[in-house]
């Protein structure tokens, strides 16, 4: 009979209408901003820089290697390297970023900077309420705004952060083992040991100091070895 299809459809909308008062499957929206849906663990919005110490600027893991700047598809990262070096989390002397800016109005949250970073230093934040009245400057964030603690990272991405911490722990263990070996070697013969340490230092990854790594004193501070 003509019209049955329409009536069937109306019945369906009536069911949905009645259901929207009591059935959670029909009631899918929440009243933002009073109510919020919990963020997914994998969720990503914009990048931030991880730091390990109390003072965010001293503990930045970033060594200004500029890989993320190069790989970023829309070119929204801008880094200026430091002239001097300072000890990183495992006591190795590294450069650090004097300027680290991300233009969030250009960033497309693709996470490629996180994937290419060899130092576990840039990660994705879940903060999304970034509205700003300044169209350009307000979304151009510097390293002070970008720096967030490792605890924050552990809070927003627990399992990812655990993997990252484990990877760093392995690195630290390696560095300590090497430092120990170096000290023992030093005790044997000072002159020979120095040559060996130089060779070992030369074999360490990007940004390593070509001269003595000073492994026994990790807290030398940033002013310890001015770069040539």
């Amino acid at each position: 009979m003509l019209g049955t299809g329409i009536l069937k459809g109306m019945l369906e909308t009536a069911k949905n209408f009645a259901g929207s008062y009591h059935d959670p499957a029909r009631l899918t929206t929440v009243e933002y901003p009073e109510q919020r849906i919990a963020s997914k663990e994998n969720a990503r919005q914009f990048p931030f820089l991880v730091h390990d110490t109390e003072d965010p600027m001293k503990g930045l893991r970033c060594v200004a290697c500029q890989i993320c700047e190069k790989e970023c598809p829309p070119q929204c990262i801008y880094i200026v390297k430091s002239k001097d070096k300072r000890a990183d989390y495992k006591g190795q002397m590294q450069l650090y970023p004097v300027t680290f800016d991300i233009d969030l109005s250009v960033c497309m949250s693709c996470q490629i900077c996180v994937e290419v970073c060899p130092f576990e230093s840039i990660k994705m934040d879940t903060e999304f309420e970034l509205s700003n009245t300044d169209r350009f400057g307000g979304l151009l964030v510097n390293k002070h705004q970008l720096a967030k603690s490792n605890d924050h990272y552990r809070k927003i991405h627990p399992s990812e952060a655990a993997a990252s911490d484990a990877a760093l722990a392995v690195e630290v263990a390696k560095a300590q083992a090497k430092a120990k070996a170096d000290v023992e070697a030093k005790a044997k013969a000072a002159a020979e040991a120095k040559a060996k340490a130089d060779a070992a230092a030369a074999a360490t990854p990007v940004g390593a100091v070509p001269s003595a790594p000073q492994p026994s004193s990790p807290a030398t501070g940033p002013a310890a070895a001015p770069a040539a």
């Binding site: 070119q75 929204c76 801008y78 300027t99 800016d101 233009d103 250009v106 350009f136 400057g137 151009l140």
Partner: peptide, 12 residues
């Protein structure tokens, strides 16, 4: 590219 560039304050 033609030189019809619009300045936007990015740090590059």
């Amino acid at each position: 590219e033609p030189d019809d560039y619009e300045y936007e304050p990015t740090p590059h």
